[in-house]
Design a protein around this nucleic acid. Sequence first.
DNA 1: CCCGGCCATTAACGTGGATCAGTTGCGCTC
DNA 2: GAGCGCAACTGATCCACGTTAATGGCCGGG
Lengths: 239, 239
Amino acid sequence: MIEKHLMKLRARDDISAEEERALRDAIGEVIDYPADHTFITAGRELHASTLLVDGFLCRYKDLSGGQRQITEIHTPGDFADLHSFTLKYLDHNVMALTPSRVVQVPHDKLAAITENHPHLARLLWFMTNLDAAIHREWEVSLGRRSAIERTAHLFCELQVRLGVVGLASARDYALPITQSELAECLGLTSVHVNRVLRELRERELVEFRSGRVMIADLAGLKRVAEFDPAYLYLDKRAR
Amino acid sequence: MIEKHLMKLRARDDISAEEERALRDAIGEVIDYPADHTFITAGRELHASTLLVDGFLCRYKDLSGGQRQITEIHTPGDFADLHSFTLKYLDHNVMALTPSRVVQVPHDKLAAITENHPHLARLLWFMTNLDAAIHREWEVSLGRRSAIERTAHLFCELQVRLGVVGLASARDYALPITQSELAECLGLTSVHVNRVLRELRERELVEFRSGRVMIADLAGLKRVAEFDPAYLYLDKRAR
DNA sequence: CCCGGCCATTAACGTGGATCAGTTGCGCTC
DNA sequence: GAGCGCAACTGATCCACGTTAATGGCCGGG
């Protein structure tokens, strides 16, 4: 159930058998959500965090004009709202982009981990800081990169993050979301995302079709995006 | 020395005398940085975190074309790189926007706090999650708000954050940075920031002049920004 | 007192992406 | 197998913001 989460953690630090046991003991109810279902609403008090087992989730905020900004995409193995453990309620919503399976991890189990497993606790803290690093990189994309660079950057990021949990190769990966949802990540309109996707296809970098990202030229894609994966902290240096 | 930090913490949770003592015991060297000095560089291994006592800092990333995106502004009382405690090195740089005084907090002192003061440790974890919430709000600004809304939103955010530590009133506060630096926060050019500032002035909402934000109409400014301070978690609900 | 450098400001012009208004295609349902 | 609804796709037009270039103010230094 939490294998992908363990893969994600182990890409950043070593985990002992005992810590693994503590994590396995912490998991609670398994829940399936349909696509487009918002299961965490901003402001509501929370008593458990959500670990994504299968599918895609996103965090988003709505604006008055009906606009929406997705602030992060979650891939299997991610704790979608681990930060609610310290925040107690969130400033944003969390939604299933695709039919998704999650497990609940009650906050009191997390509290027990912080008391009995300091190293694991620090690693969980690290994981929330990793989400913040992803937010920062998205700020850079939204603030300074052109539409095509931004789109290429997102495809690169997801290729790496999904690769860590065995869900992406250098050639392709599943990303069963719509062009409108991509636009909500990228701060663009779906019309313009469509044009950008065409250009990426014509330049033989990537093709995004029927919920799949097919990478024709990974090196070229990274070059367009100026992609540097350092912000994903994929090494065990110093930890 | 850490009075403003304590004000910031106490705006979110109660702190016991013993916890306050633990924090005071953790502080190390005091350092003054001149304006425009980058004192933390992406990738360098870190062994202490930086608590801002006086002045303004920012986190930023550079792009190849000479462009820069500031991902967060830090105000007195902020831990500018508390996240380096778990990350060990950063994905971004940290710079003094103005002449600034900071205190170092060695990571081993933070480790001791996590072991001996679980509640305080959780509060520090919370503080890094608060930075992430600010990043998310900036993503929304950069992705979906117009230049004038975005600028108004930043002025509102800083009014609240500086107000918490006694450095802003409802009328005005000091923000001794340039229009170019403002532009680097807002994902705009300095030329356009200048136009936006003129419009905000002509609409009698705010005036930004000689390093000061003078608020003519706070309610109106918040209306333009659609500002909702919930993401700053300024209540003690449930904590 | 003049000079150089930074910052603010503005005007003229260019453009990336938004907006508007569709058409096409495809899976689902009845 | 007609009809519906949603997603992909496209062309025409518009405009918010970028680019370029120039001016003036201010301040610190020689």
